[in-house]
Amino acid sequence: MEAEYDFSKGKRGAIDPTTSGKTRITIRLDDEVLAWFREQVHSAGGGNYQTLINEALHQHIQAIRQPLEETLRKVVREELKRIER
């Protein structure tokens, strides 16, 4: 062990760079929710429970957006029909 170490070229922060388009946050989840996602990853033979949570959130967002898009299309079609008359 050296008596003194040179940290002048050291860098603070995470060792692995984060992927662009992703943000590190702290979130509190119920124990049972976290256990369920970890169990799903374990049952699948491995993986990352955080990725699984992210995918579940994406699917939820898509499920919410889809009805809105369908409603908008319906309104636009009705208005176009009304204008054509």
Score class of each variant (00 low, 15 high):
residue 6 D to Y: 06
residue 7 F to V: 07
residue 7 F to A: 11
residue 7 F to Q: 10
residue 8 S to Y: 01
residue 9 K to C: 09
residue 10 G to L: 13
residue 12 R to M: 10
residue 13 G to N: 03
residue 13 G to D: 03
residue 14 A to N: 14
residue 14 A to S: 13
residue 14 A to P: 12
residue 15 I to W: 10
residue 15 I to E: 15
residue 17 P to W: 04
residue 19 T to P: 08
residue 20 S to W: 00
residue 20 S to P: 13
residue 21 G to M: 09
residue 21 G to Y: 05
residue 21 G to R: 12
residue 21 G to S: 06
residue 21 G to V: 11
residue 22 K to C: 08
residue 22 K to P: 02
residue 23 T to L: 14
residue 24 R to D: 04
residue 24 R to C: 02
residue 24 R to G: 02
residue 25 I to W: 00
residue 25 I to Y: 00
residue 25 I to T: 08
residue 26 T to S: 14
residue 26 T to G: 09
residue 26 T to I: 08
residue 26 T to Q: 11
residue 27 I to S: 05
residue 28 R to G: 06
residue 29 L to I: 08
residue 29 L to W: 03
residue 31 D to Y: 06
residue 31 D to V: 08
residue 32 E to A: 11
residue 32 E to S: 15
residue 32 E to W: 10
residue 34 L to K: 13
residue 35 A to F: 09
residue 35 A to N: 15
residue 35 A to H: 15
residue 35 A to M: 13
residue 36 W to F: 12
residue 36 W to G: 00
residue 37 F to L: 02
residue 37 F to H: 00
residue 38 R to W: 01
residue 38 R to D: 05
residue 39 E to L: 06
residue 40 Q to D: 00
residue 40 Q to I: 00
residue 41 V to L: 00
residue 42 H to Q: 15
residue 43 S to I: 08
residue 43 S to F: 06
residue 44 A to F: 00
residue 44 A to M: 04
residue 44 A to G: 10
residue 46 G to F: 01
residue 47 G to F: 02
residue 49 Y to A: 03
residue 50 Q to M: 01
residue 50 Q to P: 01
residue 50 Q to Y: 00
residue 52 L to T: 09
residue 53 I to L: 14
residue 53 I to M: 06
residue 53 I to W: 01
residue 54 N to Y: 02
residue 54 N to A: 12
residue 54 N to S: 10
residue 55 E to Q: 12
residue 55 E to G: 01
residue 55 E to R: 15
residue 56 A to E: 04
residue 58 H to W: 05
residue 59 Q to L: 12
residue 59 Q to E: 10
residue 61 I to V: 12
residue 61 I to L: 14
residue 61 I to E: 12
residue 61 I to S: 07
residue 62 Q to F: 08
residue 64 I to D: 15
residue 65 R to F: 03
residue 66 Q to P: 01
residue 68 L to F: 06
residue 69 E to A: 07
residue 69 E to S: 08
residue 70 E to T: 02
residue 70 E to L: 04
residue 72 L to M: 05
residue 72 L to N: 05
residue 72 L to R: 14
residue 72 L to Y: 02
residue 73 R to G: 06
residue 74 K to Q: 09
residue 74 K to H: 10
residue 74 K to V: 03
residue 75 V to M: 11
residue 76 V to F: 02
residue 77 R to I: 08
residue 78 E to Q: 11
residue 78 E to M: 11
residue 78 E to I: 07
residue 78 E to P: 03
residue 79 E to W: 06
residue 80 L to E: 09
residue 80 L to C: 05
residue 81 K to D: 13
residue 81 K to W: 11
